[in-house]
Design a protein around this nucleic acid. Sequence first.
DNA 1: GCAAGGTC
Length: 537
Amino acid sequence: MSGTIKVLNVAEKPSVAKSVSGLLSRNQGLRVRDGRSRYNKIFEFNYSIRGQPCHMLFTSVTGHLMELEFEDRFRKWHSCDPGDLYHAPVRKSVPEDKLDIKRTLEEEARRCQWLVLWLDCDREGENIAFEVIEVCRAVNRHLTIRRARFSALIEREIHHATQNLIDPNQWFSDAVDARQEIDLRIGASFTRFQTMLLRDKFVIDSATDDRNLVLSYGPCQFPTLGFVVERYWEVQSHEPEEFWTINCSHKSDEGVATFNWMRGHLFDYTCAVIVYEMCVQEPNATVSKVQHQEKLKYPPYPLSTIELEKRASRYFRMSSEHTMKVAEDLYQAGFISYPRTETDSFSSRTDLHAIVQEQQEHPEWGSYAQRLLDPETGLWRNPGSGGHDDKAHPPIHPTKFSAGEHGWSQDHRKLYELVVRHFLACVSQPAVGAETIVEIDIAGELFSASGRMILERNYLDVYRYESWGASMIPTYTVGQQFIPTSLTLDTGVTRPPPLLSEADLLSCMDKAGIGTDATMHDHIKKLLDRFYATKDS
DNA sequence: GCAAGGTC
């Protein structure tokens, strides 16, 4: 008969160690104690894995435990030719600021028989798992090593993962080792090379000491800069072109309708004049089509990291880097869920009503939350799905009510408000509009005008960042004839596209797969820090 | 003085 065995469990971050411990122990007999590191607590409880009684110790790392570096003699910039960095020896080791976590792992691993790895189920997580294995095995050769595979912090799934442990996957981890080595060698060698070659070729118009100027290169920052430059070139090379268009308006007792030429515009002046003359000679307009249709404007999908960054940039002009810093504060204080997530759909197990209920007392959006919960209003709608799921975190949503805290800056308030309003919008009905499109025929040329009436605002009532304009046009019937109030030949000039906005840049990076949701803002900030690009108001 | 990834 085997007695109780001691199992060391390690998660990628403190929050996961805490939730998994809570779920497995059902908060019965759960104890917490400090480890060597301030943030990484150790949870203890009893559990049974496939009939085997276990004393569980549950702690965490904070992301990667180790870093890849060149050996000392290659660290100084002038110690070698940059080209030597492609074959200079590298080694992986635990940096100074992670030594306390390493010590905790060593101390606990010595006393345990099993090591169970609870790192995120992605490549980086697999690699961190092997870092933890290396540290623990060095002090305890006899450890039995297993991996928990889980994709959500839900009781049923966590129990299942514990009862069905698997082997860690060396191949996934090796892929990350290769990525790290390639990034380091290319980044370091090319940064040194081009900095030493080119630093005197630039005059940086800035108060900063340009002796510290570094012309870095990296496989994320460089393509990111590429998007900015590409757009800049497009703007520079734009040659304005003149075009002509025919505009028509009609004023009646009910108001004014503005009709747009369905050809859009012509670049050939002669053609435009000929068509215009035809219309002027025979200006009688006949209504050829009247179309009424109901249009829905849908609320946004549940909030992912990239969407949060894009919207904070558009609505508040907040940089993505600052947004993530503020979001991290709100997360740490328990007001919003984990802010680094690709997921934009809620699991059917999430208690969405409970999240709305919490917000009922808020002076500004509380009454909207109450309307949502009242079935009579019919305002509730199960949220849509954006089609992404990182299988680790839910979309960003409020986790605790607040009407504003003392330590909060304006930006903390704005971001919390955005997360709450976005969530309330997600579970609301779309806005409903009645659109009318009227087409007329003047001398064989077609023109159209449209109007919109808002029938129900629904989610727009809470999501004040979006608007849907209403415009009235007079009533027309098919076959009706009238003489336009004005019929003009107007000219315009093509304009270059605007410079890239931060929200556009995030979209470009997202589409091209540059960086991860947790690092995109870093790459953008790097371009600014390096004076590669600047941001205007 | 260098990369990008993880997270606090």
